[in-house]
Structure formats: structure tokens, C-alpha cells
Amino acid sequence: MTLWTVLHILTLLGVLAGAAVAVWLKDLLAAVIALAASSLLLSLAFYLLQAPDVAIAEAGIGAALTTAIYVLAIRKTRRREEG
């Protein structure tokens, strides 16, 4: 259990928590926010795995553009998950 392992496990737990929250929440906007957070932490996990290329791609695409298109899609549809 070196320092990096602890860091790594914490980050991965964060990713899992974000994903679980994203599935769990009924409010779609909140789900998208949780997904963005999960994606951001996933980028940090890639960083810890020594994959900066992938981390940049995940940050750029997962954090900014995916959030943007999800929010735009929610804007064009509706925010609450019915039922």
C-alpha cells in the first residue's frame, strides 16, 4: 500500500460514487452533473495511470463536450425523469 495506491483507490472510489449517483438520481440535470464529476475523476485516474494523452482527451471530451451536449439535449427535452 504505497501512497500512489491509496491515491489511486480513493480516485477510483470517487469515480464509482459519481457513476452510482448519476444512475441513482431522478433529476436528469443532477445526473449529468454527477456524470461530469465522475468523468473528471476518471480523468484523474488516467493521469495516475500515467496516461496523459487519454487524460486530456477525457477531460476535454468527458468534462466539457459531453456535459455540453447532455445539457443541450435536456434543454430540448425535459429535466425530470418521470415515473
Binding site: P52, A57, G60, I61, A64, L65
Partner: peptide
């Protein structure tokens, strides 16, 4: 350095966003 076509393209595309 880390980066390349996709990543840079995504950065500039986020400028569009």
C-alpha cells in the same frame, strides 16, 4: 508532449462551445 489532434481539436471545439 501529451496531446495531439483529438485533444487539441476537443480544446478548440470547447472554444466553440
Amino acid at each position: 508532449t501529451p496531446g495531439g489532434g483529438f485533444q487539441g481539436g476537443a480544446v478548440v471545439a470547447s472554444a466553440v462551445a
